[in-house]
Every structure is written in C-alpha cells, then in structure tokens.
C-alpha cells in the first residue's frame, strides 16, 4: 500500500496504475477526468502511469452548472 492524496484527502491505496485505481473505486471511466500531480492524464494513458507514494490525484467529472 502507498499513501496518496485524492481530492484533497490522504488515503492508502494499492500500488498500481491509475486505471487500477479507477477500477478499484468503482468509477465510470467515461465520466472521469484525472489530474495526476497537476497534470491531466487522458484515459488511454491511465494504464501507463503507476502511482507512487505521496502522489496527488484529482478525480473530477462534469456536473450540472450554469
């Protein structure tokens, strides 16, 4: 397990790729925008990026807004 910050909260997750994290969290990939250490990671790249201790992740999605 490694410790990463997701949406402002620090938590322990299994070491692996972004893709695995999204899967483990039960998130729908098509609705998701991922920012990894302040850089946007497009979906095709999710499987190539391995999370490391101390990483910061923002998981965002589009919602209703005016």
């Amino acid at each position: 397990m490694i410790r990463v910050t997701i949406n402002g909260k620090t938590e322990s997750v299994g070491a692996g790729t972004i893709e695995q994290l999204v899967h483990d969290k039960g998130l729908r990939p098509e609705a998701l925008v991922v920012e990894h250490n302040f850089t946007i990671v497009k979906q095709p790249q999710w499987s190539r990026i391995r999370l490391s201790e101390g990483d910061t992740l923002e998981l965002l999605s589009f919602v209703g807004g005016g």
């Binding site: 949406n7 729908r28 999605s61 589009f62």
Partner: peptide, 19 residues
C-alpha cells in the same frame, strides 16, 4: 450549454452530465 467541473464524490455513484 454550460456544464461545470467538480471533484467526484468518491462515496456516491457518479453520473455523467455529458450523457
């Protein structure tokens, strides 16, 4: 049409407004 971007609610079920 406007949309907004938000951190997802990790507990809840996400739905995609773009759908």
């Amino acid at each position: 049409i406007t949309v907004a971007l938000r951190r997802i609610d990790l507990g809840g079920k996400s739905h995609n407004i773009l759908d």
